[in-house]
Simulated scan of single mutants.
Amino acid sequence: MRRLSAILMLNILGIALFASWYLPENHGLWLRLDEGIFLYFNHYIAGSHAFAVLLAITNYRAFDLMSLLAMGLLYVHYFLRTPPQRRYQLISIGIVMLLSAVVLNQLGHLLPGSRPSPTVFFQNADGVVRVSQVTGIPTKDASMDSFPGDHGMMLMIFAAYMLRYFGGRAFACGMAILVLFSLPRVMIGAHWFSDIAVGSLSVVLVGLSWWLVTTASDKAVIWCNRRLPGERDRSYQGNINRN
């Protein structure tokens, strides 16, 4: 009953969050917040070449590997702290996490409300610049459909899995990774703030709650763990918290 209550609360929160963006004309207060954030950072991009170069580098496609590296290092940290006979369970959790991320990402794009990124929306506005034009670096600073934020959603899913299976400290590290690697997308104008704060988060709250709060993810981990080759401990106790 407690799990069902938690799931329903997360679903209500996710639906209400999306409705607060989708139902008002022109997205209501969210658009004002989005515009304010974009124009604030764009002002500094136009006034500082060094800042523009920094954003170009942190939004370059190859830089996405840094976020994968950060998540990988955090996961390896807990992997190495886990007894060898139980490490296959962490491999299974990793596989299940990747599969659920792919599924949620695809479902997220079924949401209504697709729109271009701020740099495309304001492309003819006076004083608005694009980092790729200012620096000459072919970075990711625009998108014809930025809602919901794919990158932010993947990072949120990782953080949620860290909370479910490794505890609060791991979740805090996952959230730090989320902020560190999703903020540059907003600062450069490749995403609106609400692409992540509404689009990504609402999908994760609704979709992942039915997966992680119930025993569904545990059953998937058990299924995967039993089918991986090799000799190891095939028992499973739910959380693997080594904090």
Results as ranks from 00 to 15, higher is better:
L69C: 11
P83T: 08
H49F: 13
L228C: 01
G108M: 04
R242F: 15
V120H: 09
P84W: 08
L208T: 08
V120A: 05
T82M: 14
M187G: 03
Q89M: 06
L65M: 13
G230E: 00
T135V: 09
D233K: 02
F166P: 11
M154S: 04
N59R: 14
R3S: 02
C224I: 08
M97I: 01
M187S: 05
Q133N: 02
L69V: 11
G189A: 06
G207T: 10
A172T: 15
R3D: 01
S194H: 03
Y88A: 02
G230A: 00
G167Q: 14
P116R: 04
I15L: 15
L10F: 05
A159L: 07
W210R: 07
L178H: 14
L90C: 02
G230L: 01
D195M: 07
R130H: 06
F181W: 12
I37S: 04
Y236C: 02
G94D: 05
H43D: 09
W21M: 13
R169M: 15
Q123H: 08
L212E: 01
G230Q: 00
A125R: 07
D145H: 04
M144I: 01
N124D: 02
R185F: 13
Y161V: 07
F121I: 13
G47F: 05
L13R: 11
D34V: 05
P112Q: 02
S143C: 07
I37A: 11
E25L: 10
Q237M: 03
N11C: 08
L111F: 13
I15H: 13
R87K: 09
F38G: 06
R2P: 00
V198P: 01
E231W: 02
P112N: 03
N124Y: 00
I93D: 03
G36T: 03
T82G: 06
A190L: 04
M175Q: 15
D34C: 07
F63V: 14
A50D: 03
H77C: 10
M153K: 06
G136R: 04
H49E: 12
V129D: 12
W210K: 08
M156S: 07
F121E: 09
S209V: 01
T214G: 07
I157D: 10
Y60R: 10
A46C: 03
V134S: 11
P138A: 13
L208G: 06
V204L: 09
R227L: 00
E25P: 13
N243Q: 15
Q106I: 06
V131Y: 03
S100W: 14
T82P: 02
